[in-house]
Simulated scan of single mutants.
Amino acid sequence: MPSLDFSDHARTLGDITLMKAITFDTFGGPDVLQLSDVATPHVRPTDLLVRVYAAGVNRADLTHRTGGYGRPNFGDSLIIGLEIAGEVIETGSAVVGYQVGDRVMGVVGGGAYAEQARIDYRMAMPIPAQLDYVHAAAIPEVFVTAHEAMMHLGRLQRGDSVLIHAAAGGVGSAAVQLAYATGATVYATTDGSKVARVEHLGADVAIDYKTEDFAEVIARRTEGRGVDVIIDFVGEPYFARNLKSLANGGRLIQVGILGGGGEVALKLEDILYRHLQIMGTVMKSRTQPEKHAMISRFREHWLGRFEGGGSLEPVVDSSFPLSRAADAHRRMESAENVGKIILTLEEADLR
Rank of each mutant, 00 (worst) to 15 (best):
E336H: 14
I164D: 01
A60S: 15
T287W: 12
G183R: 02
G304I: 08
R65M: 10
R11H: 12
S334D: 09
V107Y: 11
T12W: 12
T189Q: 04
R324W: 03
D102I: 00
G192H: 11
K194P: 05
A335R: 15
E300C: 04
R197S: 13
T185F: 10
R197D: 14
H64E: 13
Y121E: 10
E263T: 13
V338Y: 13
V38P: 01
I89T: 13
P2F: 12
V142H: 00
V255L: 12
V338G: 09
E148V: 11
A54D: 06
E333V: 11
D327E: 15
I342R: 00
D61T: 10
N248Q: 07
V32S: 10
D204Y: 03
L49N: 02
R11Y: 06
D47S: 09
H301R: 15
I89M: 06
I207L: 05
T23G: 02
L303A: 13
E199K: 15
V195H: 08
I127M: 11
A181S: 09
T23F: 03
H292V: 15
I119Y: 00
E223Y: 09
A348I: 10
G75N: 11
K210T: 14
Y53R: 08
D25G: 13
S77P: 03
M151E: 05
G304R: 12
T66P: 01
T344M: 05
S319A: 10
M151N: 07
A55P: 04
M19Y: 01
F239K: 04
E263R: 13
I257D: 04
P237D: 09
L350Q: 10
E212Q: 15
D191S: 15
I22P: 01
Y180N: 14
L156T: 06
E199P: 06
A326V: 06
V195K: 14
Q130S: 13
L163G: 04
A326D: 14
Y238H: 15
A149T: 05
Y98N: 09
S173A: 13
V205Q: 08
D160V: 03
I218K: 00
P140T: 11
E199D: 09
H200C: 07
G249Q: 11
S36W: 06
A326T: 08
R220E: 14
H329K: 06
G111Y: 02
H147P: 05
Q116F: 15
L35H: 05
A124I: 01
D132N: 15
V107D: 06
G92W: 03
G226R: 03
D15C: 07
H152V: 14
G309E: 14
H9Q: 14
A203S: 11
